[in-house]
Design a protein around this nucleic acid. Structure first.
Length: 517
RNA sequence: GCGAGCGUAGCCAAGAGGUUAAGGCAGCGGAUUGUGGUUCCGCCAUUCGCGGGUUCGAUUCCCGUCGCCCGCCCCA
């Protein structure tokens, strides 16, 4: 009976050497980009209290979290890092004492319980920046420019920057006394409205918020008018008084309290219903505003004017566009989308995404924006404007792969293989290996006691440029036989004559000798 | 959350109800215990993801299940 294999957990991956090195290199390049703008590294825990994300992340994200109770504590694996960084800022005096803005960058795994497929894993790597205490369009511009420059630096070309401003929709909603739950639902489903149309969305709405059937509605129009200026408690009392004064026989019927309660709820729901209609109408129009800035901006101005919404978000977008020109960002890559509404709900202003054409549905490489309330939400004492973005490292790798620009990882392999001919040479071989290693060589030792032939075959397969044979002769003479695998030349060198650092293969065997003259 | 496809060795695979389950690559050992990429020889699945059913007999047919993968939705 064979042992059954232990599988990897669904949606997570072993990252093997080559992929690991490629991603490492991507991360190194991004780090140096971030650092060139003054951002400094920070690391935060993988595990957080679930509450951190419950406060402001939005239902969608929360429903996909690894969320569990352990030893009476409700914990989760972080679904993203921004909230953690904001929390870290609030929790650490050392950070709060720093002059603003505090520019930070991070890199690490995040976890979401989603159906895995190409470019989407349950554990994935996010790398991004946060600028805390930096309001205004100059900060927004820096952050967006940095995101694009980072991709440029990696050599990526087929990407598209999509910018929006969630404040437009937020402002419209703020003027409507919509229930919180409804507001969140609408915000979260902006994309769905655009793609599937209004009917689909209304269906989903009915599930969380059942509407009244046709025959019931309309009957309350007068009552609604009657109660419209009363606060809920006054209205409640009024209904009770009304019932009492009418002297209706309530035997076998609902209690007056319940009648009053139901009637008011009904009126309120009808109010919500018409609010929802208005909101959906506005959202539909907003969703149309997607395309080249020169086309979208005039149309957007008109829409906001007709709804009497402050045009400040548009002014901000215009300013950012100008700033991006100064950063010499390729303007043909820029799309405006006023209907954009990101899945995470803490955003308050400018928001943006970067898409890559070749990745199909999993095309989003980057997402970010302004979140001026988050720091306070996670416990900060002061209002603290902030914004940032996050890259998906695996997706960047896939995008680079599809553009054929993955960094090559050749040339950083092992330099030499040492072959002790027999057990008697073990000690001496180790001495040789250690000497080379301390000089910066990467040296492998044959630890399996294979013969020279097998070792040479191994060196060929492993692409190791130098092989050093150590036998009794060499041990007694204090030398090694150094063989250049490419030229097949070999020479016997004294230990002292070995080069202090591995030489490129092109210089042949001579490179191994210390220059004597 | 919805829909489709696929599971035979580390990898690529052939087999279509009948008993040593082809072949190739990789790996290991040897020809060759101090000199390599070629060549030659040997080894490498008591079993076809797992469980049940049909059958004299199942890797093959049926049911279930698990896993992988590809669309859609949503996201990094």
């Amino acid at each position: 009976m064979r042992n059954p294999k232990v599988e990897t957990v669904r949606g997570v991956n072993d990252v093997l050497t080559e992929t690991y090195q490629i991603q490492q290199q991507i991360q190194n390049q991004l780090s140096s980009c971030f650092e060139s703008f003054g951002y400094r590294p920070i690391d935060v825990p993988v595990i957080e209290y679930t509450e951190l994300f419950l406060r402001k992340s939005g239902e969608e994200l929360i429903s996909r979290m690894y969320d569990f109770t352990y030893h009476n504590r409700r914990l989760c694996l972080r679904p993203e890092l921004t909230a953690s960084v904001a929390r870290a800022y609030v929790n650490n005096g050392a950070l709060q004492g720093e002059p603003l803005p505090v520019r930070l960058f991070y890199c690490g795994p995040a976890f979401r319980y989603e159906k895995p497929q190409r470019g989407r894993y349950r554990q994935f790597t996010q790398m991004g920046i946060e600028a805390i205490g930096a309001g205004g369009t100059m900060a927004d511009g820096e952050i967006i420019a940095l995101a694009c420059q980072s991709l440029d630096r990696l050599g990526l070309q087929d990407y598209e920057l999509v910018m929006g401003n969630i404040a437009v929709l937020n402002q419209f909603l703020a003027a409507k006394p919509l229930e919180n739950r409804l507001r969140n639902f609408l915000l979260a489903n902006m994309e769905k409205l655009r793609n599937d149309g209004r009917q689909d969305l209304e269906k989903g709405l009915e599930e969380i918020y059942p509407t009244f059937s046709a025959e019931e509605s309309g009957s309350t129009a007068r009552l609604k008018w009657l109660f419209k200026d009363l606060d809920p408690q006054e209205a409640h009392l009024t209904i009770l008084e009304l019932l009492e004064s009418m002297n209706v026989n309530l035997v076998g019927m609902r209690q007056p309290e319940e009648i009053a309660h139901r009637l008011l709820a009904k009126i309120e729901r009808e109010d919500q219903q018409s609010l929802i209609e208005d909101t959906l109408a506005f959202m539909e129009e907003l969703a149309q505003l997607k395309g080249k800035p020169e086309e979208v901006l005039p149309a957007a101005e008109q829409l906001l004017k007709s709804y009497e919404i402050d045009s400040k978000p548009l002014e901000q977008l215009k300013e950012i566009l100008t700033l991006l020109e100064s950063y010499r960002l390729d303007s043909s890559k820029i799309i405006l989308d006023l209907g954009m509404s990101r899945g995470i709900q803490y955003y308050t202003g400018t928001i943006f995404e970067i898409h890559h054409d070749t990745l199909g549905q999993e095309r989003q490489l980057c997402g970010g924006g302004r979140y001026d309330d988050l720091v306070r939400t996670v416990g900060g004492n002061n209002d603290m404007s902030a914004s940032g973005f996050s890259f998906g490292i695996e997706r960047i790798r896939l995008a680079m792969e599809s553009e054929g620009i993955l960094p090559s990882i050749n040339g950083d392999g092992v330099h030499a293989l040492i072959i002790p001919v027999s057990e008697a040479e073990w000690g001496y071989s180790i001495k040789v290996a250690e000497k080379l290693r301390h000089s910066g060589w990467q040296v492998e030792m044959d630890v399996r006691g294979k013969n020279v032939t097998s070792n040479l075959k191994y060196a060929v397969k492993r692409d190791i440029p130098y092989v050093m044979v150590v036998g009794e002769r060499e041990r007694l003479a204090g030398t090694v036989v150094v063989k250049n695998m490419a030229t097949r030349e070999q020479q016997e060198l004294s230990l002292d004559a070995l080069s202090p650092s591995p030489q490129p293969l092109s210089q042949g065997g001579e490179g191994l000798c210390r220059r004597s003259g």
